[in-house]
């Protein structure tokens, strides 16, 4: 069963396993394309595991092949459908841990946060990277706030609750929140 087909990868589900495969890009010469897809597949798997070591729930990785990652299917509810201030605060805490650890998720939306057995799982690290700059962290938070604003009526409350959690776990939280306001003005990641 196909779950999604993005610009970069196709994601299939086979029972309780997710198989994510980076697809070939014909505009790139093969030797370069293979290298990029291989590197990104490995980097994604590594970041999923590193995130887990920071204390953030992520899928367990079963296998990595050339362009393919096999991992645990998180059979829960996307936060998109169940978000409330309490869950937003906990997302803030987890994102604070993530950023303290120097990792940027790169596509932090309420569809990529899954609630299962009372825990919030971070999934889809396809655009994740290592970066300790306030700018990168600001963009990460901004992307999440945009999904609050576009899909949830109570977004002000959700944003405030996120701040509460984020501040508890990340020492530079205030700087990041200030940067989020600048990024909003640029209107770039809209």
């Amino acid at each position: 069963m196909y779950l999604t087909q993005g610009a970069e990868a196709i994601v299939k589900q086979e029972e309780d396993i997710i198989i994510k495969e980076r697809i070939q890009k014909r505009y790139r010469i093969k030797v370069l394309d293979d290298k990029i897809r291989k590197e990104r597949t490995r980097a994604e798997a590594r970041l999923i595991s590193e995130t887990r070591r920071l204390g953030i729930p992520t899928p367990i990785i079963y296998d990595i092949q050339n362009f393919k990652i096999e991992m645990e299917y998180i059979d829960g509810e996307p936060l998109k459908n169940v978000i409330n201030p309490e869950l937003s605060k906990r997302t803030g805490e987890l994102t604070g841990l993530l950023h303290s650890g120097g990792i940027i998720h790169g596509d932090l939306t309420t569809s990529n946060l899954i609630l299962k057995d009372g825990r919030i799982y971070f999934i889809d690290f396809g655009l994740a990277f290592i970066d300790r700059t306030i700018e990168a962290q600001g963009v990460d938070v901004h992307v999440l706030f945009q999904t609050f604003e576009s899909t949830h009526e109570d977004h002000e409350k959700l944003i405030n609750a996120f701040y509460d959690g984020y501040k508890q776990k990340y020492i530079h939280a205030d700087k990041v929140l200030k940067r989020v306001k600048d990024i909003e003005k640029r209107g770039r990641y809209a």
Binding site: G6, A7, E8, K25, Y27, R28, I29, L32
Partner: peptide, 17 residues
């Protein structure tokens, strides 16, 4: 050429998506 242009084409494709 192959490296630099592929980088820009990749971002162009992402913007399309």
């Amino acid at each position: 050429q192959e490296t630099a242009f592929a980088m820009m084409v990749e971002v162009t494709e992402r913007a399309l998506a």
